[in-house]
């Protein structure tokens, strides 16, 4: 599908049916059609403040964020808490890191020993853009 519909209009509906369907017979399951599953209800609690991003790079592989196969769901309305994964702006560029409140101050830490944590202190051009609430990774690419 090409267009992403407005979040609150979109419905990805998978009917959940109790029982199997006998062929050539009016489905007795028809009486048991329960709710339908809308992925949005699971993944998006505040559509107004929800944005998507796609990541490239390997600094977060320890958090299962795959270098090519992951989409992030970001909620801008949340305040970041200790150990949240956040989208931040550092020196005018987006990045994704783990947000740590440590005795020595706030750090943006990678989930890959190859990368050093970035201390966020006065005078550093950095801000939190949003909190990552879910990531979706394409299993067949991992």
């Amino acid at each position: 599908m090409k267009e992403v519909w407005r979040i609150n209009d979109s419905k990805i509906i998978l009917p959940v049916i109790a029982g199997s369907l006998p062929a050539g017979f009016p489905s007795p399951a028809a009486d048991y059609i329960e709710n339908s599953i809308d992925l949005n209800t699971l993944l998006i609690s505040n559509p107004t403040a929800t944005f998507f991003a796609q990541v490239h790079g390997d600094s977060m592989t320890g958090a299962f964020i795959h270098p090519t196969a992951t989409h992030l769901i970001i909620d801008r309305s949340l305040a970041p808490k200790h150990r949240d994964i956040v989208v931040a702006i550092v020196l005018g560029e987006f990045t994704v890191k783990r947000y740590l409140i440590l005795p020595q101050g706030v750090m943006l830490a990678a989930e890959n020993p190859k990368f050093k944590p970035i201390p966020i202190s006065e005078g550093i051009d950095a801000e939190i853009w949003g909190v990552v609430t879910y990531f979706i990774t394409e299993a067949q690419k991992v």
Partner: peptide, 12 residues
């Protein structure tokens, strides 16, 4: 915000 191919791309 309205097309999957167009979502923010982040180099991490």
């Amino acid at each position: 915000t309205t097309r999957w191919q167009d979502v923010i791309k982040i180099q991490i």
